[in-house]
């Protein structure tokens, strides 16, 4: 039995010790906003926050995350940086198919929370692990910059 703190709620789960957080979220807890894209930490679709840091949930075993604050796309709008990022995403019309976007938004929200005024180089460093097959990168960059302007 593991107790996980997900989006402020406690979940008592009977899960295998090596089970990555991604599958716990999607298939056990039922939070499907976090996406599966590669399973090898190469695409970023599965990004969640653990104590505010962006982490690829597909390669991190959930069992080791007791007492850590896990935040997913479903609740990121409740944080100031998450809300700003979501707003900017809509204003700039970033999204195409949308599948990669929960991961993009989680990475961007973490960036904004730790660095309210990121440079292009900072954006590259924070966002290059997130693949978008639809190719929305230019707008992602623009939206992050727009979010820094938001009150």
């Amino acid at each position: 039995m593991v107790t996980l703190q997900i989006n402020g709620n406690e979940h008592h789960l009977d899960i295998p010790e090596d089970m990555p957080l991604l599958w716990v979220l999607r298939d056990v807890v039922g939070l499907t906003g976090t996406k599966f894209g590669c399973g090898i930490a190469q695409c970023g679709a599965c990004t969640v926050h653990i104590d505010g840091r962006p982490i690829r949930s597909c390669v991190i075993p959930a069992a080791g995350l007791a007492d850590r604050a896990i935040t997913t796309i479903e609740a990121i709008g409740e944080t100031p940086s998450g809300r700003k990022i979501q707003q900017a995403w809509l204003e700039v019309e970033v999204i195409q198919c949308g599948y990669c976007q929960p991961g993009q938004i989680m990475s961007a929200a973490a960036l904004l929370a730790s660095n309210p005024n990121p440079s292009d180089a900072d954006i590259d460093a924070a966002m290059s692990g997130n693949i978008c097959r639809c190719g929305t990168y230019q707008r992602i960059r623009a939206a992050i910059k727009q979010a820094t302007q938001a009150a």
Partner: peptide, 21 residues
């Protein structure tokens, strides 16, 4: 070091393929 503005090839590869883990 946040990588600076150099945008070296090594940094680019690191950001994309390595930094996630």
């Amino acid at each position: 070091d946040s990588g600076g503005s150099g945008q070296s090839l090594g940094l680019r590869v690191f950001e994309g393929a390595c930094a996630s883990c």
